[in-house]
Design a protein around this nucleic acid. Structure first.
Length: 316
DNA sequence: TCGCCTTTGAAGACA
DNA sequence: TGTCTTCAAAGGCGA
């Protein structure tokens, strides 16, 4: 990526930051002059990924506005910023799996080794977020954290994985109680998948066009498959809402279904999701989706418990 | 205040 | 290997 391209991305991002979410999505532009949504990395709101409670504590932390980023990407060094920006060039994936030591299912091309990541990146491990100036620009951080701090999250994660160190942090730190552990260990959220990224972009549009607020209804609109559950646009009640007597009217004012997107359009989001995963892996090496299993030990979705009728039996 | 609702996709767990 | 489960976002709403 040349400097001009990079500058353009940054300028676009900057301009988008002031726009309402979903703004500029030509797909719904009244003028309809473009007919193509903007690149997927253009319209995502500012980064946010940590648990909201934690995010509140980090609210004052300057974050690198990674285009389309979902995580609280810290203010990276100029070098890392360029790397992050360059990830938006197709086929440029910065991870050197051999060097970094964590899985990398994707081809790599950028010459980033573990040394180039070094503390510049690892210092932003969420473990450090509490008191070590997470996200502060390097210029504002008087002294880099110790090596132990830098790798604490990674080390702990690895220990937990290997089973060594005994049930890892959950047992040693949590002491059997999940809440205490959560207070100590920031909750690193999963990277968003393609559909989630798409939903994030389109939500505002659906809210505006359909005057809907309920996320369940919005998600249903965005994710519905044509012919899957309904042949027409008659009002439909959500499962739960139906039980509660609150039918959700089907919105016909926008055509926002994920499945109605062209392959190219969907590919943008898949690509973006892939970049998100790559960045997530770099920011939180050693993190595993398993780490979030049972987070809060309350959200237990049990789709299997739902009746087949609720499941639709109308899947693809 | 907590958890459900709803969607797709990624990834871990398990048989 | 295939299937199942959980979790990501989001905000309203019932318990």
């Amino acid at each position: 990526m040349d400097l001009a391209t990079l500058a353009m991305i940054m300028m676009n991002k900057a301009s988008k930051m002031g726009l309402p979410a979903g703004g500029g999505l030509s797909l719904f532009c009244p003028a309809g002059d473009l007919g193509q949504p903007p690149p997927a990395h253009m319209g995502i709101p500012p980064p946010y990924q940590l648990d909201s409670k934690l995010a509140a504590g980090l609210a004052r932390t300057p974050m690198y506005p990674f285009p389309g980023g979902t995580y609280p990407y810290p203010m990276l060094s100029p070098e890392m910023s360029q790397v992050a920006a360059s990830w938006h060039t197709p086929s440029m994936y910065p991870i050197s799996s051999a060097a970094s030591g964590f899985r990398s299912p994707y081809p790599t091309s950028l010459p980033i080794s573990s040394s180039s990541l070094s503390s510049e990146l690892y210092r932003f491990s969420p473990t450090l977020g509490g008191g070590l100036g997470l996200g502060l620009s390097p210029a504002l951080v008087p002294a880099p954290p110790s090596k132990v701090d830098i790798f604490s999250h990674h080390a702990r994660s690895q220990a937990e994985k290997s089973g060594g160190g005994g049930s890892g942090e959950k047992a040693s730190e949590g002491g059997g109680g999940g809440s205490k552990e959560q207070n100590k260990k920031p909750h690193i959220k999963k990277p968003l998948n393609a559909f989630m990224l798409y939903m994030k972009e389109m939500r505002a549009k659906v809210v505006a066009e359909c005057t809907l607020k309920e996320s369940a209804a919005i998600n249903q609109i965005l994710g519905r498959r044509s012919g899957r559950s309904r042949a027409s646009n008659e009002p439909r009640a959500l499962g739960g809402r139906e039980r509660r007597g609150t039918p959700v009217m089907w919105c016909t004012r926008v055509d926002t279904q994920w499945h109605s997107l062209s392959r190219e359009e969907q590919a943008k989001y898949y690509e973006k999701a892939r970049q998100e995963r790559q960045l997530h892996m770099q920011l939180y090496p050693g993190w595993s989706a398993r780490d979030n299993y049972g987070y809060g030990s309350k959200k237990k979705k049990r789709k299997k418990d739902r009746g087949p009728a609720e499941l639709g039996g109308i899947g693809p």
